[in-house]
């Protein structure tokens, strides 16, 4: 049965996460998962532009994942991913030297789970045997694209979030490893009328609620069926709003409900505000932390619900409300 309910895809072949490649920036490396990243960038200014830096990190993550999975680019049938730059230059430019069929995807910061969902679909349907799925983001490219020049002295409100610098890529295959992608729940677009680009958490919380509730109703599961339910990058403030939304709904909160944006930085790190955000936020935390917990057998099943705010610099200036989307995937430990 390929689909349950209205929104949830079931991957009966249980595609595996064979290998992971994570590259993290300086502030991310000083965070709680610093030791778990494959490559930690010490010097941020080693390239001529921030955009090149981001592309370089994406390429590095691909190289690491190929090496860890003991495969070459020739063995890969499809590469899926995206980033936050216009025209997905981060993704496309960083893959131009690899001869792999490529599909760029965009759901803002929910792109990583979108890519894993499509990867699962590609493997389940048999069109691909091995797929790369990954995302990148960079603090300075996002600042320039969505906010102000990096060195501009404007005071940010406490609801702001810090865009994660780094790239995370997963090698998804038919066999290998013990972590499987079993389900994906594709989210609907939700817009609850938030207009301030400094309140991404508030803009995205309803999308997270909608997708998680749809997932539970489609699969007949409860939150208790998961060792951890993690949203993408709501930050501390968006997370608190989500908890209230669940409470209003009367949903029992009997699991470890957390958020990748809250986890990637310590609250006492400088200028992280409400937490992390960015397309790499969910990919880095999922690949460096959740997959590791599942591999070690500490957890059995995780729901990752990455959230994306679908605004552009122009729509924000035009005071449009911010629509958001959330796609969820289930990662499960399979013995044997």
């Amino acid at each position: 049965m390929p689909r349950v309910g209205k929104q949830t895809w079931v991957f009966s072949s249980e595609p595996r996460i064979v290998a992971t490649g994570t590259v993290a920036g300086l502030v991310e490396s000083e965070g709680p998962f610093g030791a778990d990243f494959d490559v930690r960038c010490r010097d941020e200014a080693c390239k001529t532009t921030w955009e090149k830096m981001e592309q370089d990190q994406f390429t590095q993550a691909v190289q690491v994942v190929l090496q860890k999975g003991s495969v070459t680019a020739n063995d890969i049938d499809l590469v899926l991913g995206g980033d936050l730059n216009a025209q997905l230059t981060g993704f496309y430019f960083s893959h131009r030297d690899f001869a792999i069929p490529a599909l760029g995807l965009f759901s803002a910061c929910a792109t990583f789970t979108e890519a894993l969902a499509v990867a699962g679909l590609a493997i389940d349907s048999g069109v691909a045997h091995r797929v790369l799925a990954g995302t990148s983001s960079h603090f300075s490219t996002a600042e320039r694209h969505f906010r102000f020049p990096t060195e501009y002295g404007a005071q940010k409100p406490p609801t702001a979030q810090r865009t994660v610098t780094g790239a995370g890529v997963a090698l998804v295959g038919e066999t290998g490893g013990n972590v499987a992608i079993t389900h994906a729940t594709i989210g609907e677009i939700k817009d609850y009328g938030i207009t301030s680009p400094w309140e991404m958490g508030a803009a995205m919380a309803p999308a997270a609620e909608s997708t998680i509730v749809a997932h539970l109703s489609d699969t007949g599961r409860t939150l208790r069926d998961y060792d951890c339910v993690a949203t993408g990058d709501l930050g501390r403030i968006g997370h608190a709003i989500l908890k209230d939304l669940f409470e209003q709904r009367g949903l029992p909160m009997d699991t470890d409900l957390t958020d990748c944006g809250m986890m990637i930085f310590r609250p006492d790190q400088t200028e992280v505000f409400s937490g992390g955000s960015g397309a790499a936020c969910s990919s880095l935390v999922t690949l460096a932390h959740f997959v590791k917990k599942l591999e070690q057998g500490e957890w059995r099943r995780v729901l990752v619900a990455a959230t994306g705010a679908l605004l552009s610099a122009v729509t924000a200036q035009q005071k449009e409300t911010i629509p958001a989307i959330c796609h969820a995937i289930v990662l499960e430990r399979k013995d044997g």
């Binding site: 609801t159 609850y192 009328g193 938030i194 309140e199 508030a202 403030i237 709003i241 209230d244 939304l245």
Partner: peptide, 13 residues
């Protein structure tokens, strides 16, 4: 019965 705006206002530091 709080509206979404009320929820957001409550959590905005």
């Amino acid at each position: 019965n709080a509206t979404y705006k009320q929820l957001v206002d409550k959590h905005r530091p």
